[in-house]
Nucleic acid binder design. Sequence first.
DNA 1: CTTCCTAGGTCAAGCGGTTTAGCAGCCGAT
DNA 2: ATCGGCTGCTAAACCGCTTGACCTAGGAAG
Lengths: 359, 359
Amino acid sequence: MTQRRVTMADVARLAGVSTTAVSLVLNNRQGTRISDDVASRVRAAAQELGYRPNLTARALSTQKSHVIGFISEQVTTDRLASGLIRGALQEAKRHNHVLFIAETEGESHAVDEAVDALTDRQVDGIIYAATRPQTLRVPARVGSTPVVMLNAVSDDVADNVLADEFAGAKDIVDLLLESGHTDGVVIVGRSMDQPDDEWLSIAVRRRLAGIWDSLSAHGVRPVAQIPCQPWSVRSGYEAVRDLLLAGVQPHALICMNDRLAFGAYRALSEVHLTPGRDVSVVSFDDDDIAVYLHPMLTTAAAPFEDMGALAVRILLDNNHRPGEHLVPMPLRVRDSVHLNRATEAEFTAMRNPEPDWTR
Amino acid sequence: MTQRRVTMADVARLAGVSTTAVSLVLNNRQGTRISDDVASRVRAAAQELGYRPNLTARALSTQKSHVIGFISEQVTTDRLASGLIRGALQEAKRHNHVLFIAETEGESHAVDEAVDALTDRQVDGIIYAATRPQTLRVPARVGSTPVVMLNAVSDDVADNVLADEFAGAKDIVDLLLESGHTDGVVIVGRSMDQPDDEWLSIAVRRRLAGIWDSLSAHGVRPVAQIPCQPWSVRSGYEAVRDLLLAGVQPHALICMNDRLAFGAYRALSEVHLTPGRDVSVVSFDDDDIAVYLHPMLTTAAAPFEDMGALAVRILLDNNHRPGEHLVPMPLRVRDSVHLNRATEAEFTAMRNPEPDWTR
DNA sequence: CTTCCTAGGTCAAGCGGTTTAGCAGCCGAT
DNA sequence: ATCGGCTGCTAAACCGCTTGACCTAGGAAG
């Protein structure tokens, strides 16, 4: 029951050596002169007793806890924070680190509390993850603990990792246009000349820039651009419904995210237009709903897991060059874009080998 | 830069007392005789220096880390693990605890690794969360660290928290039947007399029992029961499509989960039957997709957040009575069941005040 | 004038590791 | 014989906090 955990002293006693020797052997430190005889005795003893080092004690002594703090506005919400966490988790594990998780729900006093709770526990670094890539102030009180912003930007913090929105947008629109869908292009979610507002985060800005870069490279002008305030299913539905009511016949929809696309699908099906046949649709994020849709959505995936992993790597690598780290957005080529022969050949390899229909 | 963190010794020096005094004051321990004068000097000094205790050191000394380990098969996946984590997180925070997260992806060696990683860090307790309420063996090597199973059951572990599937099922089917939908009842997902298989977890068993309890209490016999192997969107679609093809006209669908319901919706709409008008649909889990559906799904919600919170409370309360802890499943009364006057009055209060359409 | 409380603290030994300085023995060179 | 240098290992300080044992001065009691 209250069996004391076996300590280094126990191992030392059994092996008939000092704890120093045990420490040196078990951490197999180079450059220290320990005989093979002692080394093997120590190892045998440790093995026999089932010794495991107490990492709390080690942390106290070495000032390295092998723990990373992960502060996030929310831990739940579709793939977003989940993906970031999951990526960070796996990368941390490979480096024998463990993750503290804290949630702030956007309240700034909660951020301070979380930072305190983590630094009080000697974390080796802090990852601050936001649900939307915004510029935000990170609490000054981080002391000497390194911080990296994940899916966010801060003036005070050197490192931040973001999705490569520009390239992703360019790629997915290239796919659309090179499949021949250059007429009747509609952008759902935002117009280029719409005035700036709180919604215009860095991510949106770049996503839009990528779209336009591709459009003008192909000499294409959209027939309509519809701003939407929240990027919700309802907004997408209303936007496309109104468009159809106004008599516009779209042939290619560029939706600013998957939720808008979901709404667009509904509006299209109401007038018996089938996505992927009558209208090609591309979108962003690869939200969970993307594969629930019928036909499944072709979308530029937000690479959350990769981003989370990269954040950890940056934190652990103390001679990386600081700055902005962009993670590519992989294209999920599914069924909402009708491919022509050329693009079929080029993009077919990108298809999900096994769409997770069965989930 | 490399500014040393202020320690208790610093505070003691500034206040002109011993570290013992500082410790006693700052932890305001009762029954120790410290003058008000000293106490206030200590507090002032701590305040002035911005002292924060080093919790690693404290943990080493007290053998209590104020950290809880959370091992989960997956951290992501729709509301499931996310909800459990989120609930645990918030409850932990209220008790000044922090959560370590570890993920196993179902591999058993990963479980051992995770347990080691956590116990090496002196966690005060471990929560083991599964994605499906199964009976599973928990590694023996947990030593003296208490464990609670979350959404799972183990013979070796005393405490486990589960959703109250029986009551939830009974409630949601009561709602359906008392709204007058007693003819043409179809159970989608499992038949009562289906042979046991790996899918028949405790949760499913109880859910089914609750359904039948309600049915027989109301003297209702379903016109059909359709087993489905994975409870996926596709299965639900195929099940209902085949049913309709066979000429059965359902008026009330009891779907074993929301994904099946999603598929059922599609099959119904193909023959121009509208859920909530022509056919009432009830379901389980309150998955994310439940509110994306049109009309929104009336479902018995899996109370993941409450379950996570309860697990933490159990772990921290060392004189609770051990055993099985059931958490009620709240009904989400939305639009897929056509209510009659009586049930309207009774259940209308349960409606979500603000459906999160806008997400 | 001792003795005994008691109020008000302090000392020092942990907790379980890491790490620096140093010690003993042995050998070859001077 | 002396000295320096190497090899192989240990003593002890330290990381920052907690805690049971102990110490001291002042007043009350004898």
